[in-house]
């Protein structure tokens, strides 16, 4: 097989992977706290045998490689829900939750209360407060969450606010290093300890941060992938067309 064929193939493989990324973004168009991913390609120069000493040097072969996929951690749209247990984070911070596998981070603020009165995610991971889990008593009512993440309730018949804890909000200097775990969770690899969020980060009660996937952009990207893929397929077909070889052999000698 000649190089043109292999170069085309490297692009095809990269495009397929890019479509995988786009389709995951589109599948998560309505997932709370989801952050869109984009692929980055780079040119990969093959270190194959070549001769540069001739007057017109052999051109090196350039392949395509998908170097990275990066997450766009920009703010998603904040949707009002009116549910007192929904929180949206305004700013660069994550909620800290405790899973059986350890501490994880999420932007999805659709919280619930479990049978033990603890604040949990829809999948049951316990939400971390600054001093351990946030636990509600059976007689608590009117849960209110302040902008800095303080959770207070009215107890029983009284009109005295009692504090139940403060959401642990964590900021990362380099959020790109967070690893996607699925279930709206991110894990922090070793050496990327989070810092407590600054005062600039605020919590909005009764709202949920939607997915930051831009439907229009993803659709155009998908069309582009589709067209490029077909174009390269055509190119490969032309290259392998025996008629071209016939033309070549028919050249006058």
């Amino acid at each position: 097989m000649d190089n043109a064929f292999l170069v085309s193939m490297s692009r095809q493989v990269a495009l397929e992977r890019q479509l995988d990324i786009v389709s995951n973004n589109i599948a998560n168009l309505n997932t709370a706290g989801f952050k869109a991913t984009s692929a980055v390609f780079s040119e990969y120069m093959a270190s194959s045998a070549r001769e540069n000493d001739f007057a017109p040097a052999d051109a090196p072969v350039h392949f395509v490689i998908d170097r990275t996929a990066y997450r766009n951690f920009s703010q998603g749209p904040v949707q009002q829900t009116g549910n007192p247990l929904d929180v949206a984070i305004n700013g660069d911070a994550f909620l800290s939750v405790q899973t059986p596998a350890g501490e994880r981070f999420t932007r999805a603020g659709t919280l619930q209360i479990n049978a033990a009165g603890q604040l949990v995610t829809p999948e049951g991971a316990i939400v971390n407060g600054d001093n351990g889990p946030i636990i509600f008593q059976t007689t608590d009512r009117s849960i209110s969450i302040s902008a800095d993440g303080r959770i207070s309730v009215l107890e029983g018949l009284t009109n005295v606010e009692s504090l139940r804890g403060k959401l642990r909000l964590v900021t990362f200097a380099r959020p790109q290093q967070l690893q996607s775990e699925g279930s709206n969770l991110f894990s922090a690899p070793a050496g990327t300890a989070g810092q407590p969020a600054t005062a600039a980060v605020s919590v909005i009660q009764g709202a949920v941060e939607g997915s930051n996937v831009n439907g229009v952009a993803e659709m155009t990207r998908m069309i582009e992938i589709n067209r490029t893929y077909s174009m390269i397929a055509n190119l490969m077909q032309t290259q392998s067309d025996p008629k071209n070889l016939d033309t070549l052999s028919a050249l006058p000698s």
């Binding site: 992977r17 995951n24 599948a27 998560n28 996929a69 829809p122 290093q177």
Partner: peptide, 28 residues
Amino acid sequence: IGTQSSDQGNILPVGIDLGSGVKTVGTP
């Protein structure tokens, strides 16, 4: 993410994470 890209200890700052879609976690 975070794997070594060279013997000199360079670390991959970002990686390729391919997601496999979406699931419903609940209808509370």
